[in-house]
């Protein structure tokens, strides 16, 4: 798979480390959330067959986190964003 890095252009997926569902960007506040909420965040996954937004880390490159939209049935990648931009758009400071 080739990932179109927004800054570096096309990069081999083998340069990246995979973390999984991009929903993990929205970590609940550990001081306020209850056990079940934290459990659901950490352990439960939608695991869709079809389009998924997921986190890839460019470890052997510029060390940026990316949000990649990819189809889990065809492996086709349709969108790549910097995770930082995604997080900021959702109201996070960084």
């Amino acid at each position: 798979m080739i990932i179109e890095h927004p800054l570096l252009g096309p990069r081999d997926a083998a340069e990246f480390v995979y973390l999984g569902d991009a929903a993990m960007i929205d970590r609940p506040d550990g001081m306020t959330v209850d056990d079940t909420g934290m459990h659901d965040y950490m352990y439960l996954r939608d695991n869709p067959a079809g389009d998924i937004r997921e986190l890839w880390y460019h470890e052997q490159g510029d060390r940026s986190w990316l949000v990649v939209t990819r189809n889990t049935i065809t492996h086709e990648i349709t969108k790549v964003e910097l995770a930082r931009d995604v997080a900021r758009r959702s109201g996070r400071s960084r």
Partner: peptide, 13 residues
């Protein structure tokens, strides 16, 4: 392979 997949086929790395 290490990424979510329902494709029943993998990649070259």
């Amino acid at each position: 392979d290490g990424y979510n997949s329902y494709a029943q086929r993998g990649n070259l790395p």
